[in-house]
Amino acid sequence: MTHRQLQLVLLSGVVIALAILPRVITDVYMLNVLVLTLMYAALSQSWNILGGYCGQISLGHALYFGVGAYATSVFYASFGITPWLGALAGGVISMLLALGLGYPCFRLKGHYFSIATIVIAEIGLLLVHNWDAVGGALGIQWPIGPDSWVTLQFARDKAPYVYLALGLFVITWLVTYWIEDSRWGFWWRAVKDNPEAAESLGVEVFRSKMAAAALSAFFTALGGGFYAAFVSYIDPESVMTFRFSLLFALPAVLGGIGTLWGPLVGAAVLIPLTEITRSYMGGSGNGLDLIIYGALIMIISLAKPEGILSLFHRNAKPDARP
């Protein structure tokens, strides 16, 4: 069995295990944590396409997440269009947005690029905040309806959300898996490692970045659409702030940036710890949850710069960068 076939077998195992979990766990709170973990794994996997494989550190993906969440919510709440289509529309809008923004932004390098992404997402946040047609600062409340796979509303049983989040994760994983071995994958890694050398060898650097951005934005928006359906109420602060942009990058960085399994591993460590410390210690507002969360991020990123995954790859070559 080749290495790549082994990855597929591993995925099947993980999917079966995760699909069984909602049958075992009946506690609504734990199911919530599971949904969020899978959702952030999928979102981080999407971020990883641009940030991890192509090396363009975006800290503004909250924009695409917000566009997905808003498109889905507006289509459903105002026109009764199913979130399946709404999320898809959000994905396409985000993709076009990423291409339009990428055109000027990909001329920028390093921190100038990252700060441009932060600033653009902030502009988006402020515009939505003051845009009354999409609810302005108040946001959008989803109409209450019966449980249904058409409207993606499940009031009593949280298991369907687990399957949806798992489905989203599997799709982003498969896309990443396919890309790793495609021409795009090789181009992206070349762009990440040394854009000048890549260019001189005939890699179309600009087109590579644009393709990575479009794909990454599309799936981030799908995640936004899912989140909106899951929480049934969104406002600008709950989907578009800088915190989200960091939360999409963080699992990939902690797990292993630019790797197939990094985002899932990172999310599996980070999200349950965050959620559990928040609910057990955050309620009092004494900041203990923040202290633990901050210390954890600091310690993992300092102790394992290559990510948690590197623990399992004793002989693997770390991805060498100058």
């Binding site: 550190i57 960085v253 290559e306 060498a320």
Partner: peptide, 8 residues
């Protein structure tokens, strides 16, 4: 850090 210094 030897790898991805910026992100670390």
């Amino acid at each position: 850090a030897r790898t991805n210094v910026g992100m670390v």
